[in-house]
Amino acid sequence: MDISLKNVEYRYQADSPFERLAITDVSIDIPSGTYLAVIGHTGSGKSTVLQHLNALLKPTKGSVVIGSREIKAGRKEKNLKGVREKVGIVFQFPEHQLFEETVEKDIMFGPMNFGVSERQARERARAAISLVGLPEEILEKSPFDLSGGQMRRVAIAGVLAMEPEVIVLDEPTAGLDPRGRKEIMDLFYTLHKKRNLSTVLVTHSMEDAARYADEIIVMHQGKVFTKGSPEHIFSNPKALIELGLDVPEVVGLQLKIEEAFGTKFKKISLSEEELAEMVARFLEGGGTK
């Protein structure tokens, strides 16, 4: 399912003394099957963009097209369930949305809201729980008896059980330890490939953006600052650094090496192995060009 934002503007609390412009003139295309990463500072408008992807916010100007549905500024929009079923959002700290007595019921909650039968929802819960790497026994437990990491996985399972075509992730690994972080990111990547989903990842981690995304959008002060492939975005690291953003550690190291040797490698490498090879070859050549 394709999603596109056309010249979207959003104002919080429009027409009040507390009005605040969050994003302006944002145009983004997310063709089906894309893995898009949205990066930028807190307050750059990332989360506002994210909430337009399944009509949690409606643009105050411009329009959003989600599949066959168009959501236009200034129009009353009814019955958005169809949109929300297809676009699942995993919010930051999603464990805060758990509320049912058992893990199973909580995972079934989403699908059943969208009219999936109880029997089917139960099956989906079973499938989703193993997808997130938790044992089936956990389905009978109360979500509030679990560890933080397990709760996070249960909440993610609750979104996966909706079987969305687009998955939107808002800092899904915040607060997890390194192992947890890697497992969750790998899980989403595998799903993305296996189910041919569109994935939108809002993140502070340049490493994750470089590693997983096909396309990166850099948000700055409510606008799209630049967009392109990871190679393209990180081939101009200075621009990002000027915005006060990080670059992936590999890129940062490459810049430092280039500076020390007063040289410039042919390309920006996004993986550690590649950089190591480039450095090895460069040094074999005598440390000069």
Binding site: L56, K78, R84, E85, V87, I89, F91, F99
Partner: peptide
């Protein structure tokens, strides 16, 4: 935040019959 998270899971807070809306308060 929670309202949005549950809306994304198919709960409707702003439309639908009163009975449904009251039920929507629990999550």
């Amino acid at each position: 935040k929670i309202m949005k998270a549950q809306t994304a899971r198919g709960v409707e807070y702003n439309s639908g019959p009163i009975k449904e809306r009251i039920k929507a308060i629990v999550p």
